[in-house]
Amino acid sequence: MQRATTLTVVRHDDTVQEYTDVRYTLTRAGLQILTGTGDEVHVDAHDVLTTHATAQQSEPGDA
């Protein structure tokens, strides 16, 4: 899974959802998101219009 500081998901109906501090995987089946609080979110592939992820680089010594 990839890590993102902010993950923005735009659906085909133009709704926008933002998630912070997540891990995610985008596959042909859809988008699987694991939030920092342990919640799992699945968005079907036909619902995803686009995604945008940003990640801050970790500082030396960060785990």
Rank of each mutant, 00 (worst) to 15 (best):
M1P: 06
M1Y: 05
Q2N: 07
R3A: 11
A4D: 07
T5H: 05
T5V: 03
T6G: 01
L7A: 05
L7T: 04
L7D: 02
L7Q: 01
T8E: 15
T8R: 15
V9M: 11
V9N: 06
V10Q: 10
V10M: 04
V10P: 02
H12Q: 11
H12L: 11
H12W: 07
H12I: 08
D14S: 11
D14T: 07
T15H: 13
T15N: 13
Q17M: 15
Q17T: 15
T20G: 09
T20V: 14
T20A: 13
D21Q: 11
V22H: 05
V22T: 01
R23Y: 12
R23F: 09
Y24R: 09
Y24L: 12
Y24H: 07
T25G: 05
L26A: 04
T27I: 06
R28V: 02
R28F: 03
R28T: 04
R28E: 09
L31R: 14
L31C: 14
Q32K: 14
I33T: 08
L34Y: 12
T35Y: 13
T37Y: 14
T37P: 06
T37D: 15
T37W: 12
T37C: 11
G38S: 07
D39H: 14
D39K: 14
D39V: 11
V41N: 04
V41D: 03
V41L: 06
H42E: 12
H42S: 07
H42C: 03
V43M: 06
V43H: 09
V43C: 08
D44S: 11
D44E: 12
H46R: 10
H46K: 10
D47G: 02
D47A: 13
D47V: 03
D47L: 14
D47R: 13
D47E: 15
T50Y: 08
T51R: 00
H52W: 06
A53Y: 04
A53C: 05
T54L: 12
T54Y: 08
A55V: 12
Q56H: 01
Q56R: 01
Q57G: 09
Q57A: 11
Q57P: 06
S58G: 01
S58A: 02
S58W: 00
E59W: 00
P60I: 09
G61K: 07
G61C: 06
D62A: 02
D62W: 05
A63E: 13
A63R: 12
